[in-house]
Design a protein around this nucleic acid. Structure first.
Length: 589
RNA sequence: GGCUCUGUAGCUCAACUGGAUAGAGCAUCGCACUACGGAUGCGAAGGUUAGGGGUUCGAAUCCCUUCAGAGUCACCA
């Protein structure tokens, strides 16, 4: 919380006690930004206090306002509009905050590392039979960004994914490759490994559909072959395992290059093939301790009807695992791997909300009280203008294709704007990535995660308006001003407290100073969009202010310093905020 | 059918979690400016917050209800 808000909140509480003889509930004290059309910077809502004062809102506000002006040096005057007490805060207060923030340099907004509990964030977690697509982009950017935001808020963060490397889906690709592949490899075909394996998954599906006509869905020969391979895999057949290793290896190499391109990474990888058996023993333990129950046919269930959920199968009658069984195993393995882990955050689409409710309840029943702090970072589907985004229906937008398209568009736009002349040839590829991927990440992250969103391939690469490149562009301009000022280390700027700021720059300053609060809020809500919006707010205010507030040309030296400091604070705040979204900021563009 | 989520300007999204006249961007129209980086800034127009009811000083936000969309309720993953 900004220092002034704490001061105000305390003063309002003690003021009420002193003036009205009764103190309100602290939650009743609401302090907010004064709307721009009114004078002042902070507004206290007085309605809640009218019952204590036994006066009308205006008189109540006047009484409190007079008290605040008399008791707080930071408050210079107040105005009352209806039930709203608008407070003007002294310039010297803002300047001291400005000096403090500027002296923190790039650390402004960040909490000390590992000063808060350890959190694990899972994201990406693809199947290994298909390449990554548009939906994975939202998932990866979200998971990575939430991880970085939690770190910035002081948490110790472990980034992980669970790789679904086992199961019938992989076996389908394997069968098709054996039948039709003729030994094709990524090297021989020139295809990325994940694309190659995906190609055979599609080939399987095609052959399967052709066979269904004659043999029916359950008895198509190629499906029987895939099941046969699955059985061999489970019994450890060496040939099958070798092929499985080889094909998964191709996929991992393909994924790795896409992750690198996206700018995301992981601290530890979990593989389903390592964890899927662990769940079984946990379920049996739960059965022994009485939290689960067994039916006559031998299947094991958990009863969650008292939590408003249903009964859920945990182990089939033949003793084999279902989906949630392995998730129980994986979760518990992670708690064992990281004994001080406070909670896990799962970045998974909202179609699995029910699944995670059940999982967290089960973890609690098994004695892992962290279960109640675990969080499903649920996000909505990414839709396309001409219909739904569904990998099964063939309207997939391939992740690598999108990334390439963003790079190319960034280049085309830069050329058209005539911006390339001053950029050295060798720096250009990196610049196109920064701008193109910045546009994409910002586009996907500025929307509230839980809402489904529209991905407009054309609109996303607009470089004007509320976009990543707009923010980058203004950052670049502010950096240029600082370079021209010869300020290498802006953190040593000191602004005289006697400088007078106008309303516009005070507003801009306040916006930039809210970075720590917004990081904190984003972390608390697992929501990068709040931070994305702040970056845009700062940028828009900065750009507007910049238009008619000379910085280097300002003749009053104290004021020039103040404006340089504001410029520096805005650029560093935006850079920090954007970096937490995974967006790199260029120095020139 | 039960449960969950969503519905805000023509379009894409906000709204500090119950606060003032619901704000931005795109698109449309107009204005400024040869610039400390114009990939600019300013303005106009655009709204019964899906409809109806309720709670209170005050509702896009909370409750009820109707409508529309999505998801889920698998011995699939």
């Amino acid at each position: 919380m900004l220092r002034i808000d704490q001061i105000l909140s305390d003063a309002v509480l003690s003021g009420c006690t002193e003036l009205f003889g009764a103190s309100p509930d602290p939650s009743q004290v609401s302090i907010q930004l004064t709307r721009p059309e009114f004078e002042g910077e902070r507004t206290v809502i007085v309605f809640p206090f009218t019952r204590l004062s036994k006066k009308n809102p205006e008189d109540t506000g006047k009484t409190i306002g007079e008290y605040l002006v008399a008791n707080l040096e930071e408050i210079t005057s107040f105005q009352i509009v209806k039930g709203f007490l608008n407070l003007s805060i002294s310039d010297s207060y803002w300047i001291s905050e400005l000096n403090e923030a500027v002296s923190a340099g790039g650390l402004f907004g960040l909490q000390p590392a590992k000063s808060k509990p350890q959190v694990m964030v899972e994201y990406s977690s693809p199947n290994t039979n298909k390449p990554l697509h548009l939906g994975h982009l939202r998932n990866n950017f979200l998971g990575y960004s939430v991880s970085e935001i939690l770190k910035a808020a002081g948490h110790d963060v472990v980034k992980v994914q669970i790789i679904n490397d086992r199961g019938i889906h992989i076996c389908k690709s394997m069968v098709a490759w054996l039948k039709f592949g003729k030994g094709e490899t990524p090297e021989s075909s020139g295809l990325k490994g994940d694309k190659l394996v995906g190609k055979y998954y599609v080939a399987f599906d095609k052959a399967y559909k052709a066979e269904v006509v004659e043999h029916g869905e359950d008895d198509a020969p190629i499906l029987l072959e895939a099941r046969e391979i699955l059985h061999k895999w489970e019994s450890g057949d060496e040939e099958v395992r070798a092929l499985w290793d080889q094909m998964n290896g191709w996929v991992y190499a393909g994924f790795e290059s896409t992750y690198k391109e996206m700018g995301v990474d992981f601290d530890k990888l979990y593989y389903e093939s390592d964890t899927y058996l662990i769940g079984k023993s946990q379920v049996e333990k739960g059965l022994a301790s009485g939290v689960f129950s067994q039916r006559e046919d031998g299947s094991i269930w958990v009863d969650l009807t008292d939590k408003g959920l249903d009964e859920k199968l945990l182990l089939r009658k033949d003793g084999t695992a279902v989906y949630i069984t392995q998730d129980i195993g994986t979760a518990i393995l992670r708690f064992e791997d990281y004994p001080s882990l406070d909670r896990q955050v799962y970045t998974v689409g909202n179609e699995q909300e029910y699944h995670f409710k059940v999982l967290f309840e089960i973890l609690g029943k098994l004695g892992f009280e962290q279960g109640e702090r675990c969080h499903h970072l649920s996000y909505g589907m990414v839709e396309l203008p001409d219909g739904k985004m569904k990998s099964r229906e063939g309207t997939v937008v391939d992740a690598d294709d999108i990334l390439a398209e963003m790079r190319e568009t960034a280049e085309a736009v830069a050329i058209e704007a005539g911006k390339l002349d001053s950029i050295p040839e060798e720096d250009r590829p990196e610049l196109f990535k920064q701008v193109g991927y910045g546009a994409l990440k910002y586009f996907l992250l500025r929307v509230d995660p839980k809402k489904s969103m529209m991905f407009d391939p054309k609109g996303s690469i607009d470089f004007i308006g509320n976009t990543g490149p707009y923010i980058q562009f203004n950052y670049v301009r502010s950096r240029s001003v600082l370079r021209n000022a010869g300020i290498e280390r802006a953190r040593y700027l000191i602004v005289e407290s006697s400088v007078e700021l106008d309303q516009t720059e005070k507003r801009l300053l306040m916006t930039a100073l809210s970075l720590p609060d917004i990081i904190e809020e984003s972390a608390r809500l697992y929501d990068p969009s709040i931070l994305a919006n702040l970056c845009y707010e700062i940028t828009k205010s900065y750009s507007s202010w910049y238009q008619d507030h000379p910085i280097l040309k300002e003749e009053n030296e104290d004021l020039r310093m103040a404006r340089l400091a504001i410029c520096s604070l805005c650029s560093s705040s935006v850079k920090t905020g954007m970096s937490l979204l995974g967006v790199n900021m260029p120095e020139r563009m």
